[in-house]
Simulated assay, not measured.
Amino acid sequence: MLLTVSGPPGSGKSTTAALLADRFDVEHVSGGDIFRQLADERGYTPLEFNKLAEENDEIDRDLDRRLREIAIREDDLVLESRLAGWLAGDQADFRFWLDAPASVRGERIAEREEKDPIRATEETRAREASEVQRYEEYYGIDIRDLTIYDLSVNTARWEPDAVLDMFVTAVEEYDPDGDEGKTPVTIDYEF
């Protein structure tokens, strides 16, 4: 089973993906962890590395290729990244999208990274705008198009365990014969 968890920074992707992986006893691969690790290895903050990625498309493309290869290769996995739903394409059994208002996400990031919430919100908005532009330019993907997702949740309204319960219910109640309403995601671009 391949589950994808996508959403903007601070939406609860990592928390939800880890809970899902634990609940279904599958591996969890985080694009954000890989991105932050790459940034740290090169001596950059995630925001600085994101800005560098604006000038060097190989940073995004390398990360996306790695995640796409994992999605194709692995069967029992929760893949978490901004583009996870797109990267997995029709390989995914479920594609979940998480979101929350920018101020809520900024507060979460500020707590995680020990910084001012206003600064974190501003940086997050800048990061999102950059990513929207880059994904469109690189792959023709409008990251704001949520029609490929099976379930979208505003995580400001529910605690992580409640979001997990929604996702687990969706997976457990899934009827594979009812796939005619599912939006196919054809991968016709190179990562």
Rank of each mutant, 00 (worst) to 15 (best):
P8I: 03
D145R: 00
V29W: 08
Q133Y: 03
V78Q: 05
V26C: 07
D165M: 05
K182G: 07
I118H: 11
A156T: 01
L52V: 10
D22T: 10
F94Q: 01
L83K: 13
E190N: 04
A126I: 13
I34R: 03
R134K: 15
L63S: 05
E180M: 02
L2V: 14
R36V: 10
I143D: 04
E55P: 03
Y149E: 01
D165H: 09
P160S: 04
E113A: 10
E136Y: 12
E69K: 10
M166G: 01
S130D: 03
L151N: 07
R108Q: 04
A129T: 00
L52D: 09
R68M: 08
R157E: 15
P117G: 05
E128W: 04
L19F: 05
M166S: 08
F35H: 12
E48Q: 12
L151H: 07
T16S: 10
G106D: 02
A120T: 11
Y139A: 04
E137S: 09
V104E: 14
D75K: 15
E180D: 05
R42E: 15
L38A: 13
E111V: 02
E27K: 07
S152I: 11
E128G: 03
L77H: 00
D60K: 01
S103Y: 05
S6N: 04
P101R: 06
V29R: 10
A120F: 10
D75G: 14
L20N: 00
L77R: 01
E136S: 12
V5H: 12
S103E: 15
K13W: 07
V78S: 04
G181T: 05
R23I: 05
E107P: 06
L20H: 00
P176A: 12
E128H: 05
P176T: 11
M166C: 07
D76T: 06
S130E: 04
D40A: 09
A100S: 11
L146H: 13
S81D: 06
L63K: 05
S30N: 04
A170P: 09
I141F: 00
D161L: 12
D75C: 11
D150H: 12
R23L: 03
E27C: 01
S14V: 11
E55K: 15
A21C: 02
F94N: 01
A102S: 06
R66G: 15
A156C: 02
N50W: 07
F167N: 04
L146C: 08
D188S: 07
F94V: 05
A120L: 11
V185F: 05
Q91E: 14
T121P: 08
I70V: 15
G89N: 09
D99G: 10
V29Y: 13
D25L: 08
F24C: 06
I109H: 07
E41K: 06
F24Q: 03
L87D: 01
H28W: 09
R119I: 01
A18Y: 02
F167Y: 14
R134S: 00
R73C: 00
F24P: 03
V153M: 15
R61E: 06
S81F: 04
D145I: 01
L77E: 00
S81A: 15
S152H: 11
V185K: 12
E180W: 04
A170G: 07
F94D: 00
T4S: 11
E74W: 10
L52A: 14
D76N: 15
A129W: 00
G178T: 09
N50M: 11
A170K: 10
L67S: 12
P176M: 10
K13V: 06
E55D: 13
